[in-house]
């Protein structure tokens, strides 16, 4: 009973914050709403007993990435008039994105989800725990993981070269 109530509260918060992200004119407000949406998502993960995932969600997205996003928005210092102009153009882009998104998601919604046997729990209790994530990352998928670290290193070096012309 309590789980259901909590689920609906978290889901409503998630959807509400998600809507705020795309409807606010003030980019800072959008970013704040995004932090709220991430927090709601972390709550949902925690309810699935995936505590490690939920904490990583907060640590990486709400703590790390969103701070950088807010930094960039504040440093850009957009005027409200600029935003209004971008809004008109953005509407077309938004419609296009919704179309693409619907095309991707609809097969999931109408083919995969109804045909899966949800009653006989397909997720193991180990799902999202630290040990299972660690085993997946460092044993099963070690090579892609190392490749990813190379990609990130390249990104860091690239950012440094771009930001500091004279090293």
């Amino acid at each position: 009973m309590i789980e259901t109530v909590l689920f609906y509260i978290l889901a409503a918060a998630l959807i509400g914050f998600g809507l705020m992200v795309i409807t606010r004119t003030n980019p800072i407000a959008s970013a704040m709403a995004m932090v709220g949406a991430f927090a709601g998502l972390a709550g949902l993960y925690a309810m699935l007993n995936a505590r490690f995932l939920s904490i990583i969600q907060i640590l990486v997205y709400a703590g790390g990435i969103m701070v950088l996003v807010i930094f960039v928005i504040m440093l850009l210092n957009l005027e409200p008039e600029d935003l209004q102009r971008m809004r008109a153009k953005g509407f077309v882009v938004l419609l296009a994105l919704i179309g693409v998104g619907a095309a991707i998601v609809s097969p999931m919604l109408f083919c995969v989800i109804p045909n899966k046997d949800w009653a006989n729990g397909s997720v193991s209790p180990e799902f999202g725990s630290m040990a299972s994530v660690g085993a997946k990352m460092f044993a099963d998928h070690l090579f892609p993981f190392e490749i990813l670290s190379l990609v990130l290193l390249t990104a860091v070096v690239g950012a440094l070269v771009l930001a500091k012309r004279k090293l």
């Binding site: 704040m32 709400a62 930094f71």
Partner: peptide
């Protein structure tokens, strides 16, 4: 993770 939120609050 949870104390990391203070950055956002202060900003």
């Amino acid at each position: 993770a949870i104390t990391g939120f203070t950055v956002i609050a202060i900003l």
